[in-house]
Structure formats: C-alpha cells, structure tokens
Design a binder for these strands. Structure first.
Lengths: 213, 213
DNA sequence: TAGATTGTTAATCGATTAACAATC
DNA sequence: TAGATTGTTAATCGATTAACAATC
C-alpha cells in the first residue's frame, strides 16, 4: 500500500469537519467542486486526497455526504473508542478533561494524574485526581490508549518513555518540547500553542509593515 | 521584498524555541549543523530559512545564539507587547487566561468576556469577566491587539466580523470553524485541537494496521 | 442520450536538499 | 594559513493543479 503523505493526513480532519457540518444541515450529496468552494481548496486536491484511500464517489453524481463522512471517520479511526488519561491537571488539563466534544467522538477520559498534593484527591468530571506514581498500575489495569501531557516540559520526556514502555499507544503532548518515540511503538502528536500564537503575531506585524511601506 | 512562504513562517517559532533552550543552558554559539541535529531537520533548510530574513551568521563561526534568538524574536514581533482579550471564559478560555508563559512573552490579558450570567462578575486573574456587549467600548477605550475566541462556533463569525470592524488586529480562534477576514484587515489564526487529536488517532490505527499485515 | 463529475495520469509549481564559492 | 561554516545557486524531490477519458 502506498505511503500517504503527512500533508494529506492533516487535511482529512478538515474534510471530516466540513462533511459533518453538511450532514447537520441535512445535505445528502455534494461534489468535489462544491466542497472546494466551501473550503477554499481546489477540487482536484480533494479528489486526489480521497483517492489515496479508495473510491468514495460516483461519476456524474458526486459524493454521498453521509457515506463520505463515515468513511473518513473510519480512516481516522473514529469508529473506535479510546481510553484516555490526562497527566497534569492544571488549567489546560482540566479544560481538556471537561471538553465534551472529545468524549462524544469516542475519546473517553478515564484517569487524571498530577504531582501537586493540592490537586490529588480532587474530583474533576467524576474522576479523582491521582498521584503520578499510580499511572503504571492504572495503565496496566485499565488499558490506556492515549495519554494527554499537560505538564511542565521538564517531566515530559521521562513520562513519555515510561508510557511507551507500559504499552500506551499515543501521546497528545502540550508541553513545549518535541517528544519523540524512543522505540517506535508509540505515536506522538506535539501541540505547540505558543508557536501558533507567535505565527499570529508575525502575521500582524507583517500586515502593518505592508501598510507603512 | 520577496514573499516568505507559509512553511518557513511556521518553522520560525520552533527555531526560536530551540535557541531559547540553548540560551537557557548558556550556550553562546551554534551552527546550522548542530541545530539541524538537535531539531531533526537539514542544516540546509535552516540556512535557507534564515536567509529569507537577512544574514545572521558568520562564515567559519556559525551563529551567536543570543543574537539569532533575539533576531528571530523581532521577526516574529515578540519585542512588542500585545493587549489581549479572551471571549468565552469556559475551561479553555480560563486556561489561556492563566497561562503565565504568554504573559511573559508580551501577550497581556486585559479583558475577559462571556455571555453566561453565571460567569459575568467573576474574577479570573484579577480581571472581572464582563458581558460580551461591552466588548466594543472596551476595545475602543483600551486598544486591543488580539482577541482569543474560546466560544461555541455559532457565535464566532459574527464576533469576528465586529472585531475586525473595531480595529482589532488579530484573532486566535479556538472555535471549530475556519474564520476568515472579511475585509483583509484582521489576521486570523485558527487552532483546531480536535483535528490534532484525530491525526493522532489516525497514526495509532495506521501503526496497528502495519503490525497486523 | 446528454450532462455532470469522478478517478487518474500528466504537467506545473514550489519546497527541500545538495553543492560549493566566499570568507571568517 | 588551514579548517569551518556561512550564504546562495543549482538540482532534486514531492505536492498541487490541470486535463481528460471513463462512466454514472
């Protein structure tokens, strides 16, 4: 099977979102042309992207919205459920714990862990925050698919190493450090919010420079 | 001046972060080769990227870490301060309001707004949450550079339209919708956390498929 | 059938990498 | 001076777009 490029993969969730919006509005059918206009990409790219994964459309008709939505969902692995733990229950960790949309898409928060004695024992979303020393036994007893790291960067690499060892399948990392899999068994998605904010400040200054020239 | 590609711009904050880490460790000088090994990119790309903005190095020597760090900071507009408001003070909004790192980089939270009467009047980070109807006068009185949108997607487009009208320079959007500038006066950075999580679930399933084949 | 739109190949474009002269 | 490493041009690679035959 041919290797799918990262650029294509990163676009899939966006297609999924637009199709979900169409579905919510009871739109039954669409075409690459219509989608391309909505999304601001070329129709060619949409067809090219989708054909990496199979043939979802029909000549002369286009795509059935629900079928394409479901298909992309399957490609993304969204028909499954994932057990999640959150390590670091500060503001961001709590925000993610409480974000109901993730739960709805099958990402089920099962455990919360922190080092801060003030937080340990607190209940967030019906879950008691436990000490990080309990992660190992929790993972082994409950089977954890994804760990969300919302903690300071200093502790992140060691925890990541252990999570991989214990068989966790994925890390969603919010610490400002690029985590990498050490044995290639765990998947890591690094999210760098502050970098996104810097991109915005760059854009703002760029635009103002233009004006003053 | 030649147009800088989006790919390059998105890499700048990452260079900035690695240089900041070196600086913290009192490293005085570095080279594209050394940086490339740390960051997992090619030395050629680093030199190519930097040369979009000027000449920061010296043949035979490499780069002075502090100078390069400061230079990239200036390119990103980080030597300035930005007045920020947060619209939608749910969990995520509060997390951002409390994130001290942004404050330290010059992004100063000045106002918090929500529609929820339960939240209005509450104090977060010494700031009283106000009703969204007060945004307009607040913007005009205080001069707001960036608005963070952490609210449901339904309300986002209208608010974005108004923010642009009132002269806000940038929107950092966390609502699951692609906001666009209507008049081209405001810069918008859309952050889609759930899409990042889907990319992770794709990767996890991909890896497991490999194994079973 | 005629019109529409896919799936897919071929052409173009842009981004990345390699190479090397310049020079510290 | 000799070694190192930049800035930059040229070559390569991959991703995007255009085009069109297939077909619903």
């Amino acid at each position: 099977m041919k290797k799918i490029s990262q650029a294509v993969i990163k676009r899939l969730p966006r297609y999924y979102r637009y199709l979900g919006d169409l579905l919510e509005n009871d739109v039954v059918r669409t075409s690459s042309k219509e989608l391309s206009e909505r999304m601001g990409v070329t129709a060619s790219q949409i067809r090219q992207d989708l054909n990496n994964f199979g043939e979802f459309g029909q000549q002369g008709y286009g795509y059935n919205v629900e079928y394409l939505y479901t298909s992309i969902g399957k490609i993304l692995g969204l028909e499954k459920e994932y057990n999640i733990i959150i390590i670091g229950v500060g503001n961001l960790g709590q925000a993610i714990a409480n974000y109901i949309e993730f739960e709805r898409k099958g990402f089920k928060v099962k455990g919360l862990f922190d080092v801060n004695p003030r937080l340990i024992g607190m209940i967030v979303r019906d879950i008691e925050i436990k000490d990080v020393s309990e992660i190992e036994s929790f993972v082994k007893e409950n089977g954890v698919d994804i760990a969300v790291l919302t903690l300071p960067k200093q502790k992140a690499p060691e925890i990541a190493l252990n999570l991989e060892k214990w068989g966790v399948k994925g890390i969603w990392n919010f610490a400002p450090i690029d985590l990498q899999s050490s044995q290639g068994k765990i998947c890591i998605e690094n999210v760098h919010l502050s970098e996104s904010l810097m991109t915005l400040s760059y854009a703002i200054n760029e635009k103002n420079d233009e004006k003053s020239n």
